[in-house]
Structure formats: structure tokens, C-alpha cells
């Protein structure tokens, strides 16, 4: 029983984890320093920001949608958090509260546009991203100010047993969400809505509420990713979120989520985020330019869609 469960689990999540292991082996061959605990911790540290944001993106893709506004949310969070905190520990709760309210609003508006307004998710969230980026520019008038408070920076800079604390935040969030999606009614509703919204509605699932909640979750996690990033960097920076629009999708897609919704897993996205981060640091070691990294990212999106489709011919995966 236990063995079949392990085997089943292995069969379900293997491809991306296998890819992570192979890539790590390759990285270690090129640069043996990659095996040092310090370097591993570094990878986890950098992967954490992408990991949290991609966890939210997974929910949007599971619903059969997409959330391109995560980039704008991350940027705005960074700008707002630093400008509200102004480097003072007392103002941390207020900063977090403001960011939380903002991200919830963004997510709910996205969800309402997609469900009630029947706007295609790609257009709704692309437009929302533009609005958020514009808002960040207007708010700062192009020159951001403020700084993260010392106590806030500890959130991301600390280590627990050698593991960066932002990585611990990330894994805790991802595992909790994986549990919610797999083992609670709400999670099943998300999968059902994404797989076949019409059938879910006919089975009494409140699809509109589930979809809105899903987009709210996506925005909120993008906000959390933005806070961790802010804690790590300590300064405001316009456009800090921009790379995450694409990379969060790449992480989910290499994790094997079906783009049509209803198939995919947050656990696989953890591996996806590690994979992307490893690949980036590998290309850094190889001194590949930023441009080439974008090229690789683009090829990776198309290749993983095709690869997972080929794998599916052998048997449907449910996780």
C-alpha cells in the first residue's frame, strides 16, 4: 500500500524533479562549487521569490486562466512597502496591511473581470498589469523613495539551520497551498472549475466565487513574493517585478500544469522554480547574456508544453 502510493507519487511528479536533479548534476560538473551548502542556500534564496509568485500563478493556470498582472503587483508592493515603511520598524504592520489590501483588490477585480465581465484572462490581466505599472510610476513620479525597515529585512535575510528564511516562508506557503488544493473542498472546486467550468456549475460548485478567490490568491501570493523580495533587497526599484511576468509562467509550465486548466500541482511548481533558478545561475556561470536567458526561457516554455504533451500520450497524469 505504502509502496504503491510512493510509486504513484513518484510517477506523478517525477519529470520535473528528475530534470532538477539532472540539471544540478550538470551544474556540479561545470562548477563543483555548486555542491557547497552555501551555494545551495543561495539557489534556494533566489528561488524563493519566484517560487512564491509562481505558486499563485499555479492557481490561475489551474483555473484555466493566467495572471500576467503578478509583475505589476510585485513592483507596486515593492514601491508601496518601502515608501510606507520609510525604514522604521513601527510602520511594518501598516505597510503589510496596505499591500495586502491592494493585492486583494487587484485579484478581486481580475476575477470579476474574468467571470462577470467575461473578459479573456490574458487581456484582463495584461491590461491590469499596465494599470499597476502606471500606478507605480505615477505614485513615485519616476523616482522611488523609502526603504525597508531593519526588522523587516530580517524576514528574508535570516537563516534557520543554514536555510534562508525566505526559502522557509516559500516552502511553508507552497506546502500549505498544496494541502488546501488537494485535500479541501475549496481546492477540489478549483480543479473542477478549471477542468470543466460548465460541469462544475452543474454540480453546484460556486464557480464565480471560486474563480474570484483564485485570482485573489494569485495576487496575494505575488504580493507576498514582492514583500520577501523587498525584505531581501531593502530598496524600492521601479520595474523590479517585470521579469516575474514570464518566469512565473515558465516555472508553472515546466512543472507540467495543463494550460487548459484542471491539471497541475503546486509541488511541481516548487521544482519548476528551482529549475528556472538553477538554469539562470548556470547561465550566469557560463557568462551567458541576459538576452540569451530570455531566449532560453522562451524555448523552455514551448519545449515543456510539447514534452508534457508527449508524456501524456502514455497515460494521463492527475497531479
Amino acid at each position: 500500500m505504502a509502496w504503491t502510493r510512493i510509486r504513484k507519487l513518484a510517477g506523478q511528479v517525477a519529470p520535473i524533479w528528475l530534470a532538477v536533479i539532472l540539471l544540478y548534476a550538470l551544474a556540479a560538473m561545470i562548477s563543483p562549487a555548486m555542491l557547497k551548502p552555501e551555494q545551495v542556500a543561495n539557489i534556494l534564496q533566489v528561488a524563493a521569490f519566484l517560487g512564491v509568485i509562481a505558486t499563485g500563478q499555479t492557481v490561475a493556470l489551474l483555473l484555466g486562466g493566467i495572471d500576467l498582472s503578478v509583475a505589476g503587483v510585485v513592483t507596486l508592493t515593492n514601491i508601496v512597502a518601502t515608501s510606507v515603511m520609510l525604514g522604521s520598524n513601527d510602520r511594518i504592520p501598516l505597510a503589510i496591511l496596505v499591500c495586502l489590501v491592494l493585492s486583494l483588490m487587484v485579484g478581486i477585480v481580475n476575477g470579476v473581470l474574468v467571470t462577470v465581465g467575461r473578459v479573456a484572462p490574458i487581456i484582463a490581466t495584461l491590461a491590469m498589469n499596465s494599470v499597476l505599472f502606471g500606478a507605480a510610476l505615477i505614485y513615485t513620479d519616476g523616482s522611488p523613495y523609502g526603504a525597508a525597515a531593519p526588522a523587516f529585512k530580517a524576514l528574508a535575510e535570516g537563516r534557520i539551520a543554514g536555510v534562508p528564511s525566505s526559502a522557509i516562508w516559500w516552502l511553508a506557503i507552497a506546502l500549505a497551498l498544496a494541502y488546501v488544493l488537494r485535500r479541501t473542498t475549496f481546492g477540489r472546486w478549483v480543479y473542477a472549475t478549471g477542468a470543466n467550468g460548465r460541469a462544475a456549475y452543474m454540480m453546484g460548485v460556486p464557480v464565480v466565487a471560486v474563480t474570484i478567490a483564485g485570482y485573489a490568491l494569485s495576487s496575494t501570493l505575488a504580493m507576498v513574493g514582492g514583500l520577501l523580495l523587498t525584505a531581501y533587497i531593502g530598496n524600492p526599484s521601479l520595474g523590479i517585478g517585470n521579469p516575474y511576468m514570464l518566469s512565473s509562467i515558465v516555472a508553472v509550465v515546466v512543472g507540467g500544469a495543463a494550460l487548459t486548466g484542471g491539471q497541475g500541482s503546486v509541488i511541481a511548481t516548487i521544482a519548476g522554480a528551482i529549475f528556472i533558478t538553477l538554469l539562470t545561475s548556470l547561465t550566469n556561470i557560463a557568462q551567458v547574456s541576459t538576452g540569451a536567458q530570455f531566449v532560453i526561457q522562451g524555448v523552455l516554455i514551448a519545449a515543456s508544453v510539447l514534452l508534457y504533451r508527449t508524456l501524456e500520450i502514455g497515460g494521463q497524469r492527475t497531479m
Partner: peptide
């Protein structure tokens, strides 16, 4: 979206 990233990478190169 994949070709967006691809062509953007090419321009940056």
C-alpha cells in the same frame, strides 16, 4: 508568450 521572450532575448543580444 514564448516567442515574446525569445525575440526579446534576441534583441537584448
Amino acid at each position: 508568450l514564448a516567442t515574446y521572450s525569445l525575440f526579446y532575448g534576441v534583441v537584448l543580444i
